[in-house]
Design a protein around this nucleic acid. Structure first.
Length: 219
DNA sequence: TACCAGGAGAAAA
DNA sequence: TTTTCTCATGGT
């Protein structure tokens, strides 16, 4: 029985880039803060904002909720969209504390937890799935713009497909393992950053020929 | 100078 | 219901 194309791509990426050990954070709560701050933003800028929170002893749900909006926005300034992100982060922390914090949330089923996260204004599907996978260690596949771009170029999925359809495609096409899902998403981001930026037709791409159905030959 | 970055929600059509 | 607009800094 032939290996699934999704596993073939994973193998190529892992061979090329090695383990990524995501998410770059010290605690599950820091993962969740980063997930909100990285929305449409380069991670380098997110790190600066998180460093500001840490410097001001504000890297906790209690401190974020207690901070005045203008103060929080100033700390988040390097990550861009700081007014919106200050509001979104406080929305999330209010919800997080109201549910009893991480230990309590860890007892929730994955569907309930996902639904709860999505009920927060400012937490959309990708942000919720980042949190579920990297903070709560649930077997949920994260779909982002890179995933869409790379796999549509390979001919493995449609760029117009909805988020839930894409998520289901990966979750059903791969062994349901948290470690695999973590590495796969991280490898996709790594590949997009180093090899996929300005040369989508690059013949030297590590994914060239990874899929028999590929139209462009590379991603 | 212009574009892009580990999106999401509100407003408009 | 679907599409478009807005939010904003920093690196390439």
């Amino acid at each position: 029985m032939p290996e699934s194309p999704l596993l073939t791509v994973y193998g190529r990426l892992f061979e090329a880039y090695g383990p990524q050990h995501w998410w770059p954070a010290e605690t599950p709560f820091e993962v969740m803060v980063g997930a909100v701050l990285t929305q449409n933003t380069a991670w380098l800028n997110v790190e600066k904002a998180i460093a500001n929170l840490r410097t001001h002893d504000a890297l906790s749900a209690e401190a974020i909720v207690a901070a005045p909006h203008d103060q929080l926005a100033a700390w988040l300034q390097p990550s861009g969209y700081f007014n919106i992100k200050a509001r979104r982060l406080q929305n999330f922390c209010h919800w997080y504390l109201a549910q009893g914090g991480f230990t309590r949330l860890q007892t929730w089923s994955t569907p309930d937890l996902r639904q709860g996260l999505l009920s927060v204004n400012g937490v959309g599907p990708e942000t919720a799935d980042d949190m579920l996978l990297y903070a709560f260690e649930r077997p949920v596949f994260v779909i982002d713009a890179y995933t869409r771009r790379i796999f549509s170029r390979l001919g493995l999925l449609s760029a117009e497909a909805g988020y839930e359809h894409l998520r289901a495609t990966f979750e059903q096409g791969l062994p349901r393992e948290v470690g695999l899902f973590k590495e796969y998403h991280a490898l996709i981001v790594q590949h997009a950053k180093v090899a996929c930026r300005r040369r989508p037709q690059c013949g030297e791409c590590v994914l060239a020929g990874a899929c028999p159905a590929a139209q462009t030959g590379a991603a």
